[in-house]
């Protein structure tokens, strides 16, 4: 018996050495452990043996069965791993080959700026109001305290379409509309971004450009409130460290009127080519709503005060994306447009 077991063990060792595939492992399983396998055959004559012998043969055959099973499992595992490794090797790709391109489109920088400005003011409880681009002379000028023949009209050379209607030269026209429309004469908080038109075309001016107008009317609104609001706005649009400076100025529809400068976001106020060495950049016109404008809008200037501000959208787009020429915004070169295909960073101008 021991002889037989020994010879099985030796044969198994030789067989395993010559086994190189899973198929061969399966064959070995049949050869040793199958119904007529070598190990099974050891116990084929059990019936002819004594109880003691049976115990002995049973024990020995179990031992050799366990041994064979383990040996085959080991080689099986080893071969499995080898085969997997071969497959991985075969499936390996060159990750440096180019991708299948998925093209993104873009949103125009002009509208990206509008959306940002809208979001900021909506977060402060302002309504975003739309107004027509074909306006009446009355809404665009007269109700803003610029009567016919007023010199301030010269600065805004106007495209008229007939004696009464024109292409709005400023989004301020929406101020007049909003005040009239508010029948109950309740407080107003609104901005109006949009396109405006002036007969003017050169490197720094386009005959069509964007403006956003803001208007707040309430009781006890002050110039200090205007400054606080614009400080927040400037920080949001141009960066946390932005400072705001007021200079007295003149607009027919506000009194007092101010020009609003922001500290240069490029040099931080030290002076550079962008701010012409002054450290400041003029970005807004603003002021307290002129009593005549309030009155014409149906608000009693004895009771109500308000502030208004206006700024050019194109310049903000040019600042944020470092666009050197306003005309690039309107040329629509596909190589320009395609660049605006990613998200904005918060306060990108730093």
């Amino acid at each position: 018996m021991n002889e037989k077991i020994k010879s099985i063990k030796e044969e198994l060792t030789t067989d395993i050495k010559n086994t190189h595939s899973m198929k061969e492992v399966a064959d070995l399983k049949v050869k040793y452990l199958g119904k007529k396998g070598l190990v099974t055959e050891l116990t084929s004559n059990m019936k002819e043996l004594s109880i003691e012998e049976r115990k002995e043969v049973g024990k020995l055959s179990n031992e050799i069965r366990t041994h064979v099973t383990e040996e085959l499992a080991t080689i099986e595992k080893k071969l499995e791993l080898e085969e997997l490794n071969q497959k991985l090797e075969k499936d390996t790709i060159d990750i440096s080959l180019p991708s299948d391109k998925i093209k993104r489109g873009s949103r125009h920088p002009f509208n990206r700026i509008i959306e940002d400005i809208e979001d900021f003011f909506v977060s402060m409880g302002y309504d975003v109001v739309d107004g027509p681009e074909i306006e009446t002379d009355e809404n665009c000028f007269q109700r803003l305290n610029v009567p016919l023949g007023h010199p301030a009209r010269d600065a805004q050379d106007t495209f008229y379409i007939d004696s009464e209607y024109l292409l709005r030269t400023q989004t301020s026209s929406v101020q007049a509309r909003t005040m009239q429309k508010n029948q109950e004469k309740t407080p107003i908080r609104m901005i109006c971004p949009g396109k405006v038109y002036r007969r003017d075309d050169d490197a720094t001016h386009s005959h069509q450009f964007g403006q956003v107008e803001g208007l707040v009317i309430d009781k006890n609104v002050s110039l200090a409130d205007l400054k606080g609001t614009l400080e927040l706005f400037a920080k949001k649009m141009l960066g946390e460290n932005t400072k705001v400076r007021f200079r007295p100025s003149f607009f027919p529809f506000t009194e007092p009127s101010v020009e609003v400068d922001v500290s240069c976001f490029k040099c931080g106020g030290k002076g550079c080519s962008l701010c012409k060495q002054t450290g400041w950049i003029e970005v807004l016109g603003a002021g307290m709503v002129h009593p005549n404008v309030l009155r014409m809008g149906g608000y009693d200037p004895e009771v109500w005060t308000g502030f208004a501000f206006g700024t050019g959208l194109d310049r903000f787009a040019m600042f944020r994306y470092a666009i050197p020429d306003i005309r690039y915004l309107y040329t629509n070169d596909i190589r320009f447009l395609e660049q605006f295909d990613r998200k904005d960073e918060e306060n990108e101008i730093k």
Binding site: G125, Y126, D218, L223, A224, K227, G228
Partner: peptide
Amino acid sequence: IDNIQGKQMILPVVPGT
């Protein structure tokens, strides 16, 4: 005019639209 300090306005909470 620049000596005027900016104030944070206190206004009723109204959602913007």
